[in-house]
């Protein structure tokens, strides 16, 4: 075991421990780490935004081939109008850019939501029920699960009698679904924790772990 001499590893080690001090209570070390990540992240994204979007997607197309890309001036003007939100007197001008973005976004999403969010889900659910040794009638369980879960989310009718009973079946399916998601989330968080432990033991303390 030999402790790392790389200053970057020391910095990452310091911040890793600083964040874990939150397990004790909120303290100044955690707050430092919190604000450093916000500040560094902001600076990092500003630089990326400048390089890839402002220069890459706007300035270069406009300066190298103005003839075919001159139309980009129109959204640029709308974008400038969006910035008027900073000045209360002229903030109403931002509504034009917002209107374009929201309207086009809604129109863009409308058929795709029907196609991908509704019809595809129905296609995948409403399949012939297969009671063979491979199918085992699982599709019937899925149909029951989908319908009962949807009924659970239908709040316009009181959950009583037969309707309430079906909604109760839906709760069971939802609880199992949430449990599976919960299990996956725990696994993902634990793998991140293992990653940090490996960093501290391997990169910082130089231990041969495997």
């Amino acid at each position: 075991m030999h402790i790392s001499t790389n200053p970057w590893v020391w910095i990452a080690f310091f911040f890793t421990l600083s964040v874990y001090t939150f397990l004790w209570k909120d303290n100044f070390l955690y707050k430092i780490a919190e604000h450093v990540t916000v500040g560094v992240g902001m600076g990092f994204w500003i630089v990326l935004w400048w390089d890839q979007t402002v220069v890459g997607q706007f300035w270069i197309p406009l300066s190298t081939n103005f003839g075919t890309n001159f139309h980009l001036i129109v959204p640029a003007i709308m974008g400038l109008m969006m910035v008027t939100r900073i000045i209360p007197k002229y903030a109403w001008m931002s509504r034009y850019a917002l209107g374009f973005t929201i309207g086009a976004g809604a129109g863009f999403a409308l058929p795709r939501v029907i196609q991908g969010g509704i019809l595809q889900q129905l296609y995948a659910t409403l399949l012939p029920i297969d009671f063979s040794s491979t199918g085992l009638g699982y599709n019937l369980i899925i149909i029951i699960g989908v319908l009962s879960s949807l009924i659970y989310f239908f709040f316009s009718k009181e959950h009583k009698g037969v309707f309430g009973g079906i909604a109760n079946i839906g709760i069971w399916f939802l609880m199992v679904g949430f449990g599976a998601t919960f299990g996956y989330t725990v696994m993902a968080r634990l793998s991140l924790f293992i990653g940090r432990v490996l960093f501290v033991l391997g990169d910082f303390f130089g231990m041969q772990l495997f």
């Binding site: 409308l110 029907i114 969010g117």
Partner: peptide, 24 residues
């Protein structure tokens, strides 16, 4: 994952889809 979880996720996806459609 493939049966009860899938059923719950599909119901949620259908709810989200219908909600998104109405919002648009």
């Amino acid at each position: 994952l493939n049966v009860p979880n899938m059923a719950a996720k599909r119901a949620i996806a259908l709810g989200v889809g219908l909600g998104s459609l109405l919002m648009t």
